[in-house]
Design a protein around this nucleic acid. Structure first.
Lengths: 210, 210
DNA sequence: TAAATAAACGGAGGCGCCTCCGTTTTAGTG
DNA sequence: CACTAAAACGGAGGCGCCTCCGTTTATTTA
């Protein structure tokens, strides 16, 4: 833990030549990430790497060739999940009225944080250690949120005078909330409350759920 | 790393009944700490615990009984070293004129930090994880420094208008200085520079070295 | 001093980490 | 298709972590 150089991202010149992997290598890599995501969600970031390799039906050596350290693997999984979260925003925006999409997405955001709660300590270490990872992902998330907020404001189903960063800030309270057993409910209510505030004074009433 | 509860200090009511250890247990414990301090200094906080037990001529089980986690052991060693540093302040104060004592101690402080440089990452984690450890030790250190500064000011060998916390703050720059190879020299010069500043305008010139 | 018992010891065993290197597979090339 | 070089595979082996529990030792009591 001590002397090992920090596992930072490797290139400044934006991915110059990522070199296509051989077909089998790509297959194995994908499978590993898949299985690892599951394992980390279930057992935390300390999940056994040998078990992951086993479940991916791959030798332990293969795992280590693709991901030299545990942190590498965790980082990939983390980025992938953040990406999924952001893609969900686009999808929701397609399938629902803007304000509903926003609410559903925030709800999903809470779910996502919830699954990460147990890992908070080690994830925090990873995020403070690897600042690129932090700025990349938080930038990506706030961008997704911004689009949702602006779309809803444009549609007139939430008030127009709020900034996306304010909303993110409000959601940020979720991180710091104490780890009570009813944390999940609390956060759900927070989102609803936030939405009420956002809808108050909107030009249109929304034709919404429940 | 993830789910294990933080290894916090255990009692609020200031050490109610620490229960005297059996003679052999105390002996083994002391030896372990001794050896561990050496090992951590040499190999970093990732030093092999089995090796430490071996060198202390003790079973691995004994080590784990005394120190349930690596962090426990690291914490004890760290506290012990901080304590030694502070005791050195008293000793120097006895054996030297106040301003000389101050300079020598700051030099020693730098040496101490130097040996901890390699461990910075994991130590930082430990110190942010265990806030009691941080406040205890930093309090102890600043108290030691305060005495040295005040004694020198009282003796008139440094100016009277400086606050110990300012000095500590100046020394603090050492932490954040980049990890260059000449770091050690730099820090030495910083201390000298600081002393010059402190002596400037003192009521008495010091009858000092070099 | 001897017996009794609570405290401490210590290492075998099971598991995970990670490296190293002989074997297998893929993607070109004629 | 063969053939070949490069790429990728995979697992044995060595080491460290940590737990569990049968054995040893210090202390107390008589």
């Amino acid at each position: 833990m001590a002397e090992r150089p920090l596992a930072t991202a490797d290139e400044k010149p934006a991915t110059p030549a990522p070199k296509p992997l051989r077909a089998d290598a790509q297959r194995n890599r994908d499978k590993l990430v898949e299985v690892a995501a599951q394992a980390f969600a279930t057992d935390g970031v300390d999940a056994s790497l040998e078990e992951i390799a086993r479940q991916a039906e791959v030798g332990i050596g293969t795992l280590y060739r693709h991901f030299p350290t545990r942190e590498h693997l965790v980082e990939i999984v983390y980025r992938r999940e953040v990406e999924a979260l952001c893609l969900a925003a686009e999808e929701l925006a397609r399938d629902h009225p803007a304000d509903v999409a926003l609410e559903l997405w925030m709800q999903r955001f809470v779910d996502y944080i919830a699954t990460k709660r147990g890992l908070a300590t080690s994830l925090r270490i990873l995020l403070t250690t690897n600042s690129t990872l932090f700025s990349d992902t938080s930038g990506r998330v706030s961008q997704a949120l911004k689009r949702l907020v602006e779309a809803a404001a444009a549609a007139g189903t939430i008030r127009a005078d709020v900034d996306a960063s304010d909303v993110l800030h409000a959601l940020g309270g979720i991180y710091s909330a104490p780890n009570t057993p009813d944390w999940r409910d609390r956060s759900g209510r927070l989102v609803k409350l936030l939405m009420d505030g956002l809808r108050f004074g909107a030009t249109k009433a929304s034709k919404v759920p429940r």
